[in-house]
Design a protein around this nucleic acid. Structure first.
Lengths: 97, 97
DNA sequence: TAAGGTAGTCATGTTTTTCTGACTAATTGT
DNA sequence: ACAATTAGTCAGAAAAACATGACTACCTTA
């Protein structure tokens, strides 16, 4: 049982909480990300963690999964509309420190 | 060993991550908070968790501890300057949903 | 003197999150 | 045929977060 979310900001904070999601989000702001690419960039991250993080970011509508049917079959994750709407918040957080 | 924080927003996200910190922060925006008061308001939260959350929020400079030397000795936690600077970010997060 | 409220701490146990390493499956290059 | 790259999944172990209940210490009221 989950109690009703009485704090609206809490949901979005939760979507970005965890060991790797903030970094994945930041990288995704720069451009499309891919599974193995992230695995290389995020030192110490396990396949498992990256897979779960990507899945949840997608489920929460922050990233969009795109299958590219070329050559060795690529899968990209792009920032969704909702994801892009979070960029200003991120910028604001960065400016505070 | 903690790797250098390459994502500036990440630090602040971490300061607000956890089961109770977002709610505590939100309540603190309304006014001073106290230990037992929070324990009553946050259904399901343990003394332990509230104590740790308050300590970390204070260590991270988002809350300020104030000892009120009256009657049965009260301890208040107020939003610091830094904590107040986070309010607009919270508002923005709320507006996004 | 005992009860109740203040604000916690501490040891222990459970639950959640994360990591490790093996494995799958399709495609490409040697 | 074999190795490597793509993108994962899965079982199990370790680590981190959280809950439970007992306990401390100070102060006030009955």
């Amino acid at each position: 049982m989950e109690s009703a979310n009485s704090c609206p900001a809490e949901g979005l904070l939760k979507m970005l909480s965890g060991k790797w999601k903030p970094q994945i989000f930041r990288i995704a702001v720069e451009g499309p990300v891919r599974f193995n690419g992230l695995l290389r960039q995020l030192e110490g991250a396990s396949k498992q963690s990256v897979a779960v993080a990507l899945k949840e970011l997608e489920e929460n509508g922050l990233l969009e999964k795109v299958v590219i049917k070329l050559k060795p079959l690529h899968i990209e994750y792009n920032l969704s509309q909702k994801g892009q709407s979070l960029i200003p918040v991120f910028r604001q957080l960065e400016s505070l420190q």
